[in-house]
Simulated assay, not measured.
Amino acid sequence: MPMTDIPSLDELLTFNSDGLVPAIAQQHDTGEVLMMAWMNRAAIDETLKTGQVCYWSRSRQAYWRKGESSGQVQKLVKLRVDCDGDTILLLVDQKGVACHTGRRNCFFNEVDKSGQIEIIADVLTSPDQLYGDK
């Protein structure tokens, strides 16, 4: 593809009606899917500028720099956009656990074909240790 045919990031991305795009964080060297969160354009810009992943917290209506309160920082290795421009894949180097529950990743509830749920990952770090008593 000639360089002139490559769209800009703004042309490539499709944000939802709230100005957000889902972002999946994946450990760059193992392929482990860590978590999914939301980003707006400013969070993407900060992530690209600083190399530390920044998300938009819908519940707090504020920027959420992964690891700023827990120390479990995500460093950006690569940022990819899917073919439709409506999902971001962040290849990251995750320090410690990614999930606020103290597990390595957020996908620890496994549902079998009958609908039964099994927790398949142990808590590695107490949430109280990560965030202090709240």
Rank of each mutant, 00 (worst) to 15 (best):
R80Y: 14
A23F: 10
Y55D: 01
W64E: 04
L48H: 08
K49H: 14
N40P: 00
M39G: 08
D82Q: 03
H28G: 05
K75H: 15
N16Y: 03
L20R: 08
Q26P: 00
I6Q: 12
Q26N: 08
D86C: 01
K49V: 04
G71A: 04
G31K: 13
C54N: 12
A42N: 07
S8W: 13
L9V: 12
V53L: 06
A62I: 03
S17M: 09
Y55A: 05
L13A: 14
T30H: 10
Q61V: 04
R41P: 00
L34Q: 11
F15M: 07
G31Y: 09
C54M: 14
W38H: 08
G71M: 05
Q74M: 13
Q74H: 11
E32R: 13
I44Y: 08
Y63P: 00
L12N: 06
A25L: 11
I88T: 05
M35R: 04
G31I: 09
T14M: 11
D29S: 14
T30A: 12
L34R: 14
M39I: 07
F15P: 00
W38R: 04
I88D: 04
D45M: 07
D82P: 00
L90D: 03
L9P: 00
S70T: 02
W56K: 06
G51N: 10
I24Y: 10
R60V: 07
A37E: 02
Y55C: 12
L20W: 01
V33Y: 13
V77F: 13
D10C: 06
D18K: 15
A37W: 13
K49Q: 14
G71I: 05
T47Q: 02
L9F: 14
A37I: 04
L90Y: 03
G85S: 03
E68G: 02
L76P: 00
H28S: 13
D86Y: 11
D82V: 02
I88S: 06
P22Q: 12
L89Q: 06
R65L: 14
M35I: 09
G71F: 11
T50F: 03
S17V: 03
A62P: 00
G67T: 05
G71R: 05
S17R: 12
N16K: 09
L9D: 03
S70E: 02
A37G: 14
W64L: 07
Q74R: 09
A23I: 04
M36P: 00
S69D: 07
H28P: 00
L20E: 02
D10F: 11
F15K: 07
T47F: 07
G67N: 04
R58G: 05
Q52H: 11
V21I: 15
M39P: 00
G67A: 03
